[in-house]
Amino acid sequence: MSAMLQVRDLVAGYGQAVVLEHVDFTVKRGEVVAVVGANGAGKTTLLNTIAGVLQPFSGSITFDGTDITKTPAHALPKQGLVLVPEGGRLFPFMTVEENLEMGGFSRRKASDFADSLEEVMQLFPILKQRRAQFAGHLSGGERQMCAVARAVMSRPKMIMLDEPSVGLSPKMVGEVFSLVENLARTKGITVVLVEQNVQEALEVSDRAYVLDHGRFVRNGSSAELGGDPAIQAAYMGL
């Protein structure tokens, strides 16, 4: 398995403030990788930097063999990399269907759109009933589903999810995570999952990184990390 995403010696942050200090991060093709850590550890900064929303101070980011360190955010969906931001950030005054259409913006062709829409509706049956509603009127769980579906519309090679479980009921969290697993297993989409909900994240992922104060302090297989008493004590309240 070759690397889908390779982050080398990345330093990033906001203005003068350094949040990520010399971070190395690798995701292999087809993997589900979780990045876990406490609030403020730098998880969102990592995703935003990879997605081109933030420009790194130094280091390099390679996606599917292409250097994307300086690629602007809007050019990445076309290359197959898409970020689902925290809270989903749907377009509230557009319908569910229009939101999905925007997800496919980077691929434009109308025929592609119809196919993708059909496929996505299969994956997310709940959205079929809601397709003509404003996205702002969806429930929290539906909103998260719609945000993931919108990302899938671009037919990505890799999806990055920023805290998809935030604000959802435990039942919805389970549904969202099983959907993520499904995307990876059946569609072959590589997934990077950033979570504070460590237990659930370790259950669906193959490997995990533990981020603490801007540095990776641990990484390994999710099963191994989940069984580690130190991790359990620090992050899972066990």
Binding site: V53, A75, P77, L83, P85, F91, S154
Partner: peptide
């Protein structure tokens, strides 16, 4: 409606 999300859509 949301500049950043629009950017993320390409």
């Amino acid at each position: 409606q949301d500049r950043r999300a629009a950017r993320l859509m390409g």
